[in-house]
Design a protein around this nucleic acid. Structure first.
Lengths: 191, 191
DNA sequence: ACCTGAACACCGTTCAAGT
DNA sequence: ACCTGAACACCGTTCAAGT
């Protein structure tokens, strides 16, 4: 006879993300996660083959949420404004889920995990499409790498509290974003 | 009678960095570090009050090395060329010490550690000085934040193997760097 | 002062046993 | 099929004892 499932993969991912944001990685023991969803640690291994697998599932969950967020820009606006808007949505997501955001990019856990690389790629897709349309296929790739590098770098440093000389951080973000977009879309913007 | 010191803080930091680069964070147990310098784990606590302290010391060590590397640009060159050169030195350091580089910026361990924030600031200082000279005091801060965000973001993604669509990565780095520097120094460059 | 072995509470993971 | 308690090897850390 089947023991009824007390939880679900979905609920576990949610619990992981909540625990992570509340208490940091240190609070993410298998026992703590299990308790949060009302089971015991060994049961988690029926659904995830290791702790790393569990964290990756939570990261994938967050990446899907991010992809969703970026998927539907209002397409009546200019390319430039759409890119600007997506950048601010990206920042908003990172600031709302700082530790999950760090998890997504924690190289040690995540590099070389095919599913996660694909999920990151999917999240970056709408941005890539906009850029391809704006700068042409030839430069779309390096252009995307510039924009994504700036976004990730800024957020990474902002969340790690590396910006310590005051000044308005929001303004600094917008300043850099404008420089990056301008440098990529100069000709486009003048049309 | 004093038991003679079998090792030094210096040697321990070196061992930590070697172990880290060789085997990743997983191989960085207190027992493994101790063994690498010929002592037992409890002795490490005479010098560092916790594992986190030990990792921070290694990170500080690496940051000092980076600061040294960036400290002496040939000042007969143009500001633009100096910035370009520093950016490539920064990338070279990160690629040579990928896991140590990740450690330096691992937010969870490192945020809010005053000594590390100061060390990061010291490493960024020469870059900041060059920019202040180039764009003026008013915009030096956001300009530095843009450049540093780009550098860190690009390296962070490159080391995490996030760039998966081929294309020459070195070229992409230079492409983005040129866009960033141009957008900041347009007027300067025309002089 | 610095080093050590023994011990503590904790962790990820396995496994045989229950329903 | 899913859940469980007991057990394993490991970990960071403490401490009393050695020199």
């Amino acid at each position: 006879m089947s023991a009824p499932a007390k939880t679900s993969e979905r609920a576990i991912c949610e619990a992981v993300r909540n625990l992570l944001e509340t208490g940091g990685e240190a609070s993410l023991s298998m026992r703590a996660v299990a308790q949060a969803v009302g089971i015991r640690a060994p049961s988690l291994y029926k659904r995830f083959k290791s702790r790393e697998d569990l964290l990756c599932a939570a990261a994938r969950d967050a990446l899907q949420e991010l992809a969703e967020l970026l998927r539907h820009p209002p397409n009546d606006a200019q390319t430039y404004e759409n890119l600007e808007r997506m950048a601010h949505l990206y920042r908003k997501f990172a600031k709302k889920n700082p530790r999950t955001y760090a998890l997504i990019f924690s190289s040690e856990t995540m590099a070389a995990r095919e599913d996660l690389l694909a999920a990151r790629q999917a999240a970056a897709e709408p941005l890539f499409v906009l850029l391809a349309h704006a700068v042409g296929k030839d430069t779309a790739l390096p252009a995307a790498r510039l924009l994504v590098s700036y976004l990730h770098g800024f957020l990474s440093m902002e969340l790690a509290k590396t910006f310590r000389f005051g000044g308005n951080i929001q303004d600094a973000f917008h300043f850099g974003l404008t420089k990056v977009l301008d440098s990529l879309l100069v000709s486009k913007k003048l049309e």
